[in-house]
Structure formats: C-alpha cells, structure tokens
C-alpha cells in the first residue's frame, strides 16, 4: 500500500514537472502540488493566506539605492538586547526553546521595523541548540547587491544552550 502511494506521488511529480516546462516560468497552482519530503517533527505548516496573493500594481520608483544605509550596528545592539533579555536566566528545555525561537524572531522583527528603514525587506532567522556533545555547523550564502543588502548576526551562549540570531536586510528598489 505504501509502495503504491509512493508511486502515485512520483507520477504526479513527473506530470507537474512536465507542466512546469510547458508553461515556462509560470507558477503552478498550489493546490496541485504534492510534496515528497518526509517531515519528522510535526510543526505548524506555513500556510499563506489566499487573499494576500492579490497582485497590487505599483509604479516604479527608479530609485536604485537606499537613501540611508542599513544601521547594522544598531540592529546588532537590538539582537544582543533581545537575546539577553529572553534567555539570560533560562535553562534548556525543549518546549521552552521551541516557543522561544518563534517569540524571539517575532520580537526582533518588530523592533527592527520600529527603526523605520525605508524600502528594506527583513528576514529574521533564530537558531537555538543545546550545548552538549554534539556538533553543529551553520552556514549561509546570498545572491544580492552587496552595496545595499546586508546581514546582522549575534550569538548568545550560556551553560546549557546557545542562540544565534541573523537579520538579513534586502533593499527593494
């Protein structure tokens, strides 16, 4: 039964691939997509609101660069404040840390937004891992304009776990 199910999914995947080729860059309808990946942890799926897909046509600004550079040092300070405030006295606990990654990423995003930096899009990623006999390597690479786009990063450590927060700022011209 599992074998049959897998085969059906495989066939659907191939069909969708062909459809993508026929339509070039056209995005497929989300409802038709079937995912083959195996998810070990149950987590809230990232559902996108359908109403948010309405395309709003706006005029070009023709402004190729930011009016003021992204304040990396200020954002670094925000990261340090948030991580220290939320995690200073904490001991590692799986449920607490799972919730804390989400809370911290939202808080950091809110505080960076309050800086009101025009035309920058923000991406905040937070990692929390237990400190013990395990090895972790985290790397990232970006395709962007190095003159206007930048990243701010901070690592917090205590005796039981570490936390790493990255803020990527991407200019939208």
């Amino acid at each position: 039964m599992a074998q049959t199910h897998g085969s059906k999914q495989q066939a659907q995947r191939l069909e969708q691939g062909a459809e993508s080729l026929r339509h070039g860059a056209q995005a497929q309808s989300r409802e038709n997509n079937v995912s083959l990946s195996t998810v070990s942890h149950a987590d809230e799926p990232s559902q996108r609101d359908e109403s948010s897909r309405l395309t709003v046509r706006m005029e070009n600004t023709y402004q190729l660069g930011p009016t003021k550079p992204f304040p990396v040092a200020t954002v670094n300070h925000i990261l340090e404040d948030v991580l220290t405030t939320y995690l200073q006295e904490a001991q590692y606990d799986p449920e607490f840390c799972r919730q804390m990654t989400k809370t911290i990423s939202e808080v950091i995003k809110t505080q960076v937004k309050e800086l009101v930096i025009p035309r920058y899009k923000l991406i905040v990623i937070v990692y929390i891992g237990q400190r013990d006999d395990q090895s972790i390597v985290i790397g990232s690479r970006c395709l962007w304009n190095p003159k206007s786009d930048t990243v701010s990063s901070y690592t917090f450590k205590n005796s039981t776990f570490f936390a790493l927060a990255n803020v990527y700022a991407v200019y939208f011209e």
């Binding site: 996108r48 950091i108 960076v112 899009k121 923000l122 990623i125 990692y127 237990q130």
Partner: peptide
C-alpha cells in the same frame, strides 16, 4: 544526537 536544536524565522516583506 539526543540533544535539541530549534530554528524559527520571521519576515517583513511583500507576501505577493
């Protein structure tokens, strides 16, 4: 390993 690792992200951008 038996030890925990968590990650989350939050974005401020144009969802369309």
């Amino acid at each position: 390993s038996p030890y925990g690792f968590h990650t989350a992200s939050s974005c401020f951008w144009d969802t369309t």
